[in-house]
Computed example of a mutant assay.
Amino acid sequence: MKHIRYFKILFIIGQFFFAIYNKRKLILSLSTRSFKSNYSGSVLGLAWVIAEPLVYVFLLWFFFTKAMKFQPPEGYPYVPWLMSAMVLWNFFSHAFSSSASTFKNHAFILKKPEFNMSILPIVSILTSLYLHAIFLLIFFILMGITGIGFTLYWFQSIYYLFATAILLLGFAWITASLSLFIKDVSNIIGILLQIGFWISPIFWSLDTFPPKYRLLLELNPLSYVMEGYRKSFIYGQPFWNDWRGFIYYWSFTLIILLVGMVTYKKLRPHFGDVI
Protein backbone atom coordinates (compact mmCIF):
# COMPACT_ATOMS: atom_id res chain seq x y z
CA MET A 1 0.00 0.00 0.00
CA LYS A 2 2.84 2.39 0.82
CA HIS A 3 4.42 1.80 -2.58
CA ILE A 4 1.11 2.56 -4.30
CA ARG A 5 0.80 5.77 -2.29
CA TYR A 6 4.32 6.86 -3.23
CA PHE A 7 3.67 6.16 -6.90
CA LYS A 8 0.46 8.17 -6.68
CA ILE A 9 2.32 11.13 -5.19
CA LEU A 10 5.01 10.89 -7.87
CA PHE A 11 2.31 10.73 -10.54
CA ILE A 12 0.67 13.90 -9.18
CA ILE A 13 4.03 15.69 -9.11
CA GLY A 14 4.72 14.55 -12.67
CA GLN A 15 1.32 15.84 -13.80
CA PHE A 16 2.06 19.20 -12.15
CA PHE A 17 5.39 19.69 -13.94
CA PHE A 18 3.91 18.51 -17.22
CA ALA A 19 1.12 21.09 -16.82
CA ILE A 20 3.71 23.82 -16.20
CA TYR A 21 5.60 22.85 -19.35
CA ASN A 22 2.41 22.51 -21.39
CA LYS A 23 1.09 25.93 -20.27
CA ARG A 24 4.45 27.71 -20.10
CA LYS A 25 3.48 30.37 -22.66
CA LEU A 26 0.24 31.14 -20.84
CA ILE A 27 2.07 31.31 -17.48
CA LEU A 28 4.62 33.76 -18.89
CA SER A 29 1.86 35.81 -20.48
CA LEU A 30 -0.18 35.98 -17.25
CA SER A 31 2.85 36.86 -15.13
CA THR A 32 3.93 39.60 -17.56
CA ARG A 33 0.43 41.04 -17.65
CA SER A 34 0.22 40.90 -13.85
CA PHE A 35 3.56 42.67 -13.50
CA LYS A 36 2.55 45.44 -15.89
CA SER A 37 -0.89 45.93 -14.33
CA ASN A 38 0.57 46.17 -10.83
CA TYR A 39 2.80 49.13 -11.68
CA SER A 40 1.13 50.95 -14.58
CA GLY A 41 -1.67 52.59 -12.59
CA SER A 42 0.35 55.17 -10.62
CA VAL A 43 2.43 58.14 -11.75
CA LEU A 44 5.76 56.69 -10.62
CA GLY A 45 4.69 53.06 -11.02
CA LEU A 46 7.57 50.72 -10.34
CA ALA A 47 9.64 53.49 -8.71
CA TRP A 48 7.42 53.35 -5.61
CA VAL A 49 8.06 49.63 -5.14
CA ILE A 50 11.82 50.11 -5.52
CA ALA A 51 12.00 53.25 -3.36
CA GLU A 52 10.30 51.78 -0.28
CA PRO A 53 12.84 49.00 0.49
CA LEU A 54 15.73 51.34 -0.37
CA VAL A 55 14.43 53.79 2.22
CA TYR A 56 14.26 50.87 4.68
CA VAL A 57 17.89 50.05 3.88
CA PHE A 58 18.95 53.64 4.52
CA LEU A 59 17.06 53.82 7.84
CA LEU A 60 18.42 50.48 9.05
CA TRP A 61 21.94 51.47 7.99
CA PHE A 62 21.71 54.77 9.88
CA PHE A 63 20.13 53.24 13.00
CA PHE A 64 22.39 50.21 13.35
CA THR A 65 25.73 51.66 12.22
CA LYS A 66 25.47 55.23 13.51
CA ALA A 67 23.24 54.89 16.58
CA MET A 68 23.99 51.34 17.77
CA LYS A 69 27.51 51.06 16.27
CA PHE A 70 26.72 47.58 14.89
CA GLN A 71 29.18 46.12 12.41
CA PRO A 72 28.70 42.95 10.32
CA PRO A 73 31.03 39.99 10.94
CA GLU A 74 34.61 40.42 9.72
CA GLY A 75 34.04 44.09 8.92
CA TYR A 76 32.01 43.70 5.71
CA PRO A 77 30.36 46.92 4.43
CA TYR A 78 26.97 47.13 6.13
CA VAL A 79 24.78 48.22 3.20
CA PRO A 80 25.65 45.37 0.77
CA TRP A 81 25.67 42.96 3.73
CA LEU A 82 22.17 44.16 4.62
CA MET A 83 20.86 44.15 1.05
CA SER A 84 22.10 40.61 0.39
CA ALA A 85 19.33 39.39 2.71
CA MET A 86 16.88 42.23 2.03
CA VAL A 87 16.55 41.45 -1.68
CA LEU A 88 15.56 37.87 -0.91
CA TRP A 89 13.14 39.00 1.81
CA ASN A 90 11.46 41.38 -0.65
CA PHE A 91 11.01 38.52 -3.12
CA PHE A 92 9.52 36.25 -0.46
CA SER A 93 7.24 38.87 1.12
CA HIS A 94 5.94 40.15 -2.22
CA ALA A 95 5.20 36.64 -3.53
CA PHE A 96 3.73 35.46 -0.23
CA SER A 97 1.40 38.46 0.16
CA SER A 98 0.18 38.27 -3.45
CA SER A 99 -0.35 34.50 -3.36
CA ALA A 100 -3.61 34.76 -1.39
CA SER A 101 -5.45 36.36 -4.32
CA THR A 102 -3.99 34.11 -7.03
CA PHE A 103 -7.09 31.97 -7.64
CA LYS A 104 -9.47 34.87 -7.14
CA ASN A 105 -7.63 37.04 -9.69
CA HIS A 106 -7.80 34.28 -12.29
CA ALA A 107 -11.38 33.19 -11.69
CA PHE A 108 -12.07 33.34 -15.44
CA ILE A 109 -9.88 30.26 -15.89
CA LEU A 110 -12.16 28.33 -13.56
CA LYS A 111 -14.59 28.01 -16.45
CA LYS A 112 -12.05 25.81 -18.20
CA PRO A 113 -12.27 22.51 -16.34
CA GLU A 114 -9.35 21.07 -18.30
CA PHE A 115 -7.00 23.74 -16.91
CA ASN A 116 -4.90 22.69 -13.91
CA MET A 117 -5.34 25.62 -11.53
CA SER A 118 -2.60 24.33 -9.24
CA ILE A 119 -0.02 25.90 -11.55
CA LEU A 120 -1.42 29.42 -11.08
CA PRO A 121 0.75 30.19 -8.01
CA ILE A 122 3.68 30.01 -10.42
CA VAL A 123 2.28 33.21 -11.95
CA SER A 124 2.54 35.18 -8.69
CA ILE A 125 6.01 33.76 -8.01
CA LEU A 126 7.21 34.72 -11.51
CA THR A 127 5.72 38.21 -11.15
CA SER A 128 7.70 38.68 -7.94
CA LEU A 129 10.77 37.23 -9.64
CA TYR A 130 10.75 40.04 -12.22
CA LEU A 131 10.87 42.58 -9.39
CA HIS A 132 13.57 40.54 -7.68
CA ALA A 133 15.72 40.77 -10.82
CA ILE A 134 15.53 44.57 -10.67
CA PHE A 135 16.58 44.60 -7.01
CA LEU A 136 19.45 42.24 -7.80
CA LEU A 137 20.67 44.63 -10.49
CA ILE A 138 20.67 47.51 -7.98
CA PHE A 139 22.43 45.25 -5.48
CA PHE A 140 25.13 44.28 -7.99
CA ILE A 141 25.78 47.94 -8.77
CA LEU A 142 26.09 48.64 -5.05
CA MET A 143 28.47 45.69 -4.66
CA GLY A 144 30.70 47.16 -7.35
CA ILE A 145 30.67 50.60 -5.74
CA THR A 146 31.71 49.19 -2.35
CA GLY A 147 34.49 47.11 -3.87
CA ILE A 148 33.04 43.61 -3.42
CA GLY A 149 34.03 41.69 -6.52
CA PHE A 150 32.46 38.81 -8.41
CA THR A 151 33.14 35.23 -7.34
CA LEU A 152 31.86 31.88 -8.57
CA TYR A 153 29.89 31.58 -5.32
CA TRP A 154 27.41 34.07 -6.79
CA PHE A 155 26.00 31.25 -8.92
CA GLN A 156 24.90 29.23 -5.89
CA SER A 157 22.39 32.01 -5.13
CA ILE A 158 20.31 30.36 -7.89
CA TYR A 159 19.95 27.33 -5.62
CA TYR A 160 18.75 29.46 -2.69
CA LEU A 161 16.34 31.35 -4.95
CA PHE A 162 14.94 28.05 -6.24
CA ALA A 163 14.61 26.77 -2.65
CA THR A 164 12.66 29.91 -1.70
CA ALA A 165 10.37 29.54 -4.73
CA ILE A 166 9.53 25.93 -3.81
CA LEU A 167 8.62 26.98 -0.26
CA LEU A 168 6.49 29.79 -1.69
CA LEU A 169 4.68 27.31 -3.92
CA GLY A 170 3.57 25.27 -0.92
CA PHE A 171 2.46 28.37 0.97
CA ALA A 172 0.62 29.66 -2.12
CA TRP A 173 -1.45 26.48 -2.47
CA ILE A 174 -2.53 26.88 1.16
CA THR A 175 -3.24 30.62 1.19
CA ALA A 176 -4.80 30.87 -2.29
CA SER A 177 -7.19 27.99 -1.53
CA LEU A 178 -8.16 29.11 1.97
CA SER A 179 -8.59 32.78 1.03
CA LEU A 180 -11.55 31.87 -1.18
CA PHE A 181 -13.41 30.65 1.91
CA ILE A 182 -11.80 32.69 4.70
CA LYS A 183 -11.58 36.43 4.04
CA ASP A 184 -9.11 37.05 6.87
CA VAL A 185 -6.24 35.13 5.23
CA SER A 186 -4.72 38.32 3.78
CA ASN A 187 -4.72 39.95 7.21
CA ILE A 188 -3.09 36.88 8.75
CA ILE A 189 -0.41 36.96 6.05
CA GLY A 190 0.28 40.60 6.86
CA ILE A 191 0.82 39.76 10.52
CA LEU A 192 3.05 36.78 9.68
CA LEU A 193 5.18 38.96 7.40
CA GLN A 194 5.59 41.55 10.15
CA ILE A 195 6.78 38.84 12.53
CA GLY A 196 8.93 37.24 9.86
CA PHE A 197 10.71 40.51 9.10
CA TRP A 198 11.94 40.85 12.69
CA ILE A 199 12.88 37.21 13.31
CA SER A 200 14.75 36.80 10.01
CA PRO A 201 18.48 37.60 9.80
CA ILE A 202 18.03 40.67 7.62
CA PHE A 203 19.67 43.44 9.65
CA TRP A 204 21.37 41.26 12.26
CA SER A 205 23.58 38.18 12.17
CA LEU A 206 22.86 34.78 13.71
CA ASP A 207 26.40 34.80 15.10
CA THR A 208 25.55 37.71 17.42
CA PHE A 209 23.11 35.58 19.48
CA PRO A 210 23.94 33.06 22.23
CA PRO A 211 23.63 29.42 21.07
CA LYS A 212 20.33 28.77 22.90
CA TYR A 213 18.61 31.75 21.24
CA ARG A 214 20.30 31.16 17.90
CA LEU A 215 18.74 27.69 17.74
CA LEU A 216 15.26 29.19 18.07
CA LEU A 217 15.95 31.71 15.31
CA GLU A 218 17.27 28.97 13.03
CA LEU A 219 13.85 27.31 13.24
CA ASN A 220 12.72 30.07 10.90
CA PRO A 221 13.29 28.44 7.47
CA LEU A 222 14.05 31.84 5.94
CA SER A 223 17.21 31.98 8.04
CA TYR A 224 18.67 29.24 5.85
CA VAL A 225 18.05 30.93 2.50
CA MET A 226 18.91 34.45 3.68
CA GLU A 227 22.17 33.33 5.21
CA GLY A 228 22.65 31.41 1.97
CA TYR A 229 22.41 34.61 -0.05
CA ARG A 230 25.05 36.13 2.22
CA LYS A 231 27.26 33.07 1.76
CA SER A 232 26.89 33.45 -1.99
CA PHE A 233 27.44 37.20 -2.37
CA ILE A 234 29.32 38.33 0.76
CA TYR A 235 31.06 35.51 2.63
CA GLY A 236 32.04 33.33 -0.32
CA GLN A 237 31.13 30.05 1.38
CA PRO A 238 29.78 26.86 -0.26
CA PHE A 239 26.20 25.83 0.47
CA TRP A 240 27.15 22.27 1.44
CA ASN A 241 28.85 23.46 4.64
CA ASP A 242 25.45 23.84 6.33
CA TRP A 243 24.15 20.30 5.98
CA ARG A 244 21.92 20.53 9.08
CA GLY A 245 20.27 23.66 7.72
CA PHE A 246 19.82 21.86 4.38
CA ILE A 247 18.07 18.90 6.01
CA TYR A 248 15.84 21.09 8.18
CA TYR A 249 14.87 23.48 5.39
CA TRP A 250 13.93 20.83 2.87
CA SER A 251 12.10 18.74 5.47
CA PHE A 252 10.06 21.82 6.43
CA THR A 253 9.49 22.72 2.77
CA LEU A 254 8.33 19.21 1.82
CA ILE A 255 5.83 19.26 4.71
CA ILE A 256 4.48 22.63 3.54
CA LEU A 257 4.25 21.30 -0.03
CA LEU A 258 2.34 18.24 1.16
CA VAL A 259 -0.05 20.34 3.27
CA GLY A 260 -0.52 22.72 0.35
CA MET A 261 -1.18 19.88 -2.07
CA VAL A 262 -3.77 18.28 0.24
CA THR A 263 -5.44 21.65 0.94
CA TYR A 264 -5.76 22.41 -2.76
CA LYS A 265 -7.05 18.92 -3.61
CA LYS A 266 -9.68 19.02 -0.85
CA LEU A 267 -10.96 22.52 -1.65
CA ARG A 268 -10.63 22.57 -5.46
CA PRO A 269 -14.06 20.96 -6.13
CA HIS A 270 -15.72 23.80 -4.15
CA PHE A 271 -14.00 26.74 -5.84
CA GLY A 272 -16.93 27.23 -8.20
CA ASP A 273 -19.26 27.80 -5.24
CA VAL A 274 -17.36 30.84 -3.95
CA ILE A 275 -15.87 32.43 -7.08
Score class of each variant (00 low, 15 high):
115 F>N: 02
60 L>K: 08
131 L>H: 12
53 P>C: 11
43 V>A: 13
59 L>G: 06
146 T>E: 15
120 L>G: 03
119 I>K: 02
88 L>A: 06
99 S>H: 07
49 V>M: 06
111 K>G: 14
132 H>C: 07
97 S>H: 09
96 F>M: 08
141 I>K: 00
80 P>Y: 01
95 A>N: 00
139 F>W: 08
145 I>Y: 15
88 L>G: 13
99 S>R: 02
125 I>F: 03
66 K>C: 02
115 F>V: 03
74 E>P: 05
144 G>V: 10
97 S>C: 02
36 K>F: 09
121 P>V: 06
134 I>P: 09
123 V>N: 10
58 F>I: 15
91 F>Y: 02
61 W>K: 04
95 A>C: 03
54 L>Y: 09
126 L>P: 04
117 M>G: 13
55 V>M: 15
36 K>D: 07
124 S>A: 08
87 V>C: 06
51 A>T: 15
108 F>I: 10
88 L>N: 04
72 P>N: 03
143 M>N: 09
142 L>H: 07
104 K>S: 13
124 S>I: 03
50 I>W: 05
153 Y>T: 15
66 K>E: 14
78 Y>V: 05
52 E>C: 05
42 S>F: 06
63 F>L: 15
132 H>R: 02
51 A>N: 06
74 E>N: 15
62 F>R: 06
139 F>C: 09
58 F>W: 13
75 G>T: 07
51 A>I: 14
86 M>N: 07
119 I>R: 04
139 F>A: 11
137 L>R: 01
104 K>I: 14
137 L>K: 00
46 L>Q: 09
112 K>L: 11
48 W>G: 03
157 S>F: 14
149 G>F: 10
120 L>S: 00
101 S>E: 13
67 A>M: 15
124 S>P: 00
135 F>W: 08
49 V>E: 12
43 V>N: 10
44 L>I: 08
37 S>Q: 14
157 S>Y: 13
97 S>G: 07
96 F>E: 03
82 L>P: 01
64 F>G: 05
52 E>W: 06
124 S>D: 10
51 A>E: 03
48 W>S: 05
105 N>D: 15
111 K>E: 08
143 M>G: 08
136 L>P: 01
118 S>V: 03
44 L>D: 10
48 W>F: 11
69 K>G: 02
60 L>G: 05
95 A>D: 01
148 I>P: 05
142 L>E: 12
150 F>G: 10
140 F>E: 00
127 T>P: 02
64 F>Q: 03
132 H>N: 09
83 M>R: 06
75 G>E: 04
86 M>C: 01
147 G>N: 04
107 A>T: 10
68 M>S: 08
154 W>M: 09
49 V>F: 06
118 S>L: 05
59 L>K: 03
54 L>N: 10
70 F>D: 01
101 S>A: 11
